[in-house]
Design a protein around this nucleic acid. Structure first.
Lengths: 131, 131
DNA sequence: CAGAATCCTCGAGGATACTG
DNA sequence: CAGTATCCTCGAGGATTCTG
């Protein structure tokens, strides 16, 4: 075994682990859904808003701004009255699609098992006050 | 085109999208790191604690419990004094490794670009008060 | 060793109203 | 149409202390 023994130093850190870095980017409440809405090509602000059930303008704008700052999406403004703003993935954002789609597929394939596990767990440890 | 036209109904929902479901599972602050610590096999509670820099017992226990409830990790107790508790991935948890590793790899490969994009963005829109 | 129990802070995210 | 600007709530997560 490569890294054996007891009393080893911490070797996993929030600041360094690749997991945390991606999660920092995509783990906000609406981020994944917004990427989902944009992933098929350029799309207008209002169209994203209409496609995502329950999102507010504030959260949509906030999420888009963060993704833009992270270099994942880009914003294209057509100065007209009223203005037209379109969003699309950057090249960097497109590279994120593959891992994210795998994640989404895992969710589709396995979430039923997760729910079953939860029910089982609650039944075993917490007969009252189900989730 | 399959889903064209304007004024379409919302077709993306937090409650339904596979993205959100996985993110709901792995997006807590320490979850990914804990899975990272466990992914190579059975490991003791104290060993996880030592491996992850900065985690407290409270958060470690809380994270492990949630993962156990979701059917991702399993807990094996050896009743001795003092007790020995070992954690490992369930079969379901192991299936999560592939998508998560891809995510981690993306982070390792691309986080530098994200940081560069942030600096560029802050420089452009916010000359003072950098991040 | 492996937690459980409390108390507290801080910021993500919601509701609402206004605007170029 | 595509946002800003405020105000407010609620719970994730930290610090600390205690225990079988």
């Amino acid at each position: 075994m490569t890294a054996s023994a007891k009393t080893k130093q911490p070797d996993i850190s929030l600041a360094v682990c690749g997991y945390s870095k991606v999660i920092e980017i995509i783990s906000n409440k609406w981020t994944a859904l917004v990427i989902y809405a944009i992933e098929n090509g350029s799309i207008r602000y209002g169209e994203i808003e209409r496609r995502i059930a329950g999102i507010s303008k504030k959260m949509l704008t906030q999420t888009l701004r963060k993704l833009e700052r992270d270099g994942i999406v880009q914003r294209h403004i057509t100065p007209s009255v009223p203005p037209m703003v379109e969003y699309s993935l950057t090249l960097l954002g497109q590279t994120l699609l593959r891992p994210m789609r795998e994640l989404r597929q895992w969710g589709r394939d396995n979430y039923m098992h997760v729910e079953a596990a939860r029910m089982q767990y609650d039944f075993t440890y917490n007969k009252d006050s189900m989730d």
